[in-house]
Design a binder for these strands. Structure first.
Lengths: 204, 204
DNA sequence: AGTCATATATGACCGTAGTCATATTTAATG
DNA sequence: CATTAAATATGACTACGGTCATATATGACT
């Protein structure tokens, strides 16, 4: 009976290396295949054949085929939040900050429209059933708005929670409109203008 | 070779009657089973067994199992637009009209939370790939806003298309937040307050 | 090196969504 | 009523996602 849990520090064991490698290869291959043929047309058999693993192995890494889509979304999200972190540190007006962040996120989606189309629904659906995260767009926006209230840039007494939700809503809805529209207008420009409207209101 | 296409007028043929009956029965049975056991746990075999048809017949009526969810959404939509039509006719301020309509739609969802949860994603996904409809919430809101601009209730020169999209976005996002939240606050009240914020803006 | 516990890989197998060639029902026509 | 064409129903069959008992690989310990 061995109970020692040797900490591997930064040097990974062979096992861990192989695991990460396999996981990455599944990602890589499936991403390429999905873009080529669409999600439904790609079978797990096909993915595992190309990766060079048995079918069962796939399910050691991802609980379902659609889980892949969720993980695509998560990976993208992580990239985005690294970008956002830098943006929040700058000393610029609250509105600009919010705008910059949302445009940043928008632009990162503009880069891989087809793949985003595939996973955006699964990603949203999945998060319906998951814990609310501290790193969500909604949370970040809310914190920025609270700062804005403190500095007097945003009306005092405003319902910050609801405003943040409105901004988040606008982001996701605009994303979908853009993903499925035929004309290829600029998503980030659209978002930017919509934020203007939200800040200024529409009542004459 | 028969070429005559006898118009059946309002009197339906036996065929048409049976078709409608079968379709309705599939709806009825599947809706009940979905609510009882959840979408995934119900098999097409089970549905057809209860309805009293062969499995193949099911696919004469609905192309896929998930298509059922889309049709649930469509049916609900139709009900809702009948309600909306009456509301748009009343002579009340534009903002109230918009609020009333969105609260109306919200309340109709409050009635069957569990089933709405099942079909809302499929419904949205489906409409991503379908023609934009003239009867969408978005279109109706846009028309109301245009009226509002004419009567001077809404700022002149405003980007009506984008404002309508913002309102629609707020509606759907709030619906999802509400569907998957544990606390059971009032969805219609939430929507109402969010519309206030959108009209008044947040800049101090 | 040899032994053992555990993590990971494997592919035969199962259940279900969806297909399709064939059978049955409907209704129009003489 | 008999004939015929078209609409609809049928269920055996296929293909794919996902499971699981078994096999193999790894690394800790002596």
């Amino acid at each position: 009976m061995t109970m020692v849990m040797l900490n591997q520090d930064e040097s990974q064991s062979l096992r861990e290396k192989k695991k990460i490698e396999t996981r990455n290869k599944i990602f890589e291959v499936s991403g390429r295949l999905f873009k080529e043929k669409g999600f439904e047309k790609v079978t797990v058999d096909e993915i595992t054949r190309e990766v060079g693993i048995a079918k069962g192995t796939f399910f050691n890494y991802f609980p379902t085929k659609t889980a892949l889509l969720v993980y695509f979304g998560k990976q993208k999200e992580e990239l985005i939040y690294k970008l956002i972190k830098n943006e929040t540190k700058r000393s610029i007006p609250t509105k600009d900050k919010i705008k910059n962040i949302m445009v940043l996120v928008a632009k990162s989606n503009e880069k891989d429209k087809e793949l985003t189309k595939l996973f955006v629904f699964e990603y949203l659906r999945h998060y319906g059933y998951e814990e609310r995260r501290s790193h969500s767009l909604n949370t970040i926006l809310r914190e920025l708005l609270e700062d804005g209230v403190k500095t007097g840039e945003v009306k005092n007494g405003i319902d910050v929670k609801r405003v943040a939700e409105n901004l988040t809503a606008i982001y996701y809805y605009s994303l979908m409109e853009w993903l499925w529209s035929n004309s290829d207008y600029s998503f980030s420009e659209d978002i930017s203008k919509k934020i203007d409207v939200l800040f200024d209101g529409i009542r004459s």
